[in-house]
Write a protein that binds this DNA or RNA. Structure first.
Lengths: 214, 214
DNA sequence: TAAAAAGCCTAATTTATATTAGGTCATTAG
DNA sequence: CTAATGACCTAATATAAATTAGGCTTTTTA
């Protein structure tokens, strides 16, 4: 059985996950949303999975993906996520050329397009997010009340808990000593994404190389 | 739980059957083909099943039928099929106004639009089809090699086994003593349908009435 | 027995899904 | 270093599937 690439493996996993969650095979577009890519990319991926014999489908039929060989459980069960910068400081983030390393995170927490940021400061210590940790963020422009988000307030990137208080929005630190940031009508707030996971550890660039080697 | 009509019950069964057979929920059109009706009819039926709480679905989503309550197994497990005429004789068949009775046949043999015909003659005795039996026929214009079919050869209706011999077609009796009917280029052959089932018994018009009463 | 409900149909229309075309860019295998 | 892959994208297009509209007929039901 031919080896799958990382992306292909992620796709196969997503198919399994959605299939379980929805009780039916997902559509190409549903997979695209889940993975944070566009439909044609998924379509290509499906062709590859089919070529390699992992799935079968009926041309042009909706929801016709059949899994032939469930994906071999990933030995490490970890996926590399790029570290794009620091957060809770004034530095700009999210420039892809700014990749400063990568961390390994469990596959099962990943959803959509993710990246990681290294945390500065102690504004979220009550949520067990400490200086030097990495937050794994799913890039998305909206978030729900009480999600922990990465947001830009003006030029400042920050990690806080989102709180929608009727008319206005607050970004609340999880640290007794600090006060919420109140977002007014004229303040510019941009949600960068939602924090899916916190990784308290070292940057695993080296670790990944080792994993690939063996 | 509200009672289902015969048709609704048949629909629910078809959903279950196809779901099992295909490993995924069927589309409206697939159900239509299976039941021998048109898509909008199935669509209506689905609305009724949904109203009565037997299924759930997501508007406009392909293959989104979920079965909530599997259909109560039909006590009798029999469905009434109209008897439309005689076959293997020269009489015309298939005029719906010619309904001459009805027979009960097991639900599980029924597919698509069915009717029954009373058999005359002994041309199929080796296939255990005897004079006076009823053949249950699925109305369809095409059939496969070796199917037992009801066909019109010119004005004559007949039950025979279909045999496609390269260039020409034969209608073979299942009776050592009789010869195949060879269909030439100029002979008019019309496949009426395929025999799904043979019922060696009485016309059950009365029996059905009793069933409905109790 | 008249009205309502159930079943069907044809003909469109709308929406969802799949698929193609034609690129870009990065990584990998030669 | 160069070609082949893999992974993406945007913009269309093609096809499948669902749904609506408007009518007809038969069966049920009030």
């Amino acid at each position: 059985m031919e080896q799958l690439t990382n992306t292909q493996n992620t796709l196969l996993q997503a198919i399994e996950r959605l299939k379980r969650a929805m009780g039916m095979s997902p559509t190409v577009q549903e997979l695209a949303v889940e993975l944070g890519v566009k439909a044609p990319s998924v379509f290509e991926g499906l062709k590859r999975l089919e070529d390699k014999g992992y799935i079968r489908r009926q041309a042009r039929k909706a929801r016709s993906i059949e899994i032939l060989h469930a994906q071999t459980p990933d030995k490490t069960n970890l996926t590399a996520v790029p570290v794009l910068g620091m957060v809770a400081a004034g530095a700009p983030i999210l420039a892809l050329e700014n990749k400063i390393g990568q961390v390994m995170v469990p596959n099962n927490v990943l959803r959509g397009k993710c990246f990681a940021l290294k945390v500065q400061g102690d504004s979220m210590i009550d949520a067990d997010i400490f200086e030097g940790d990495y937050v794994v963020v799913r890039q998305q422009p909206i978030a729900e009340n009480s999600d922990i988000v990465v947001a830009m307030v003006g030029e400042e990137a920050t990690v806080k808990r989102l709180s929608i208080e009727g008319e206005h929005i607050e970004l609340r630190p999880e640290n007794q000593k600090l006060k919420p940031i109140i977002i007014g009508q004229q303040d510019e707030l941009k949600i960068i994404g939602k924090v899916l996971h916190v990784w308290s550890g070292v940057d695993t660039e080296a670790l990944l190389e080792k994993a690939k080697g063996g």
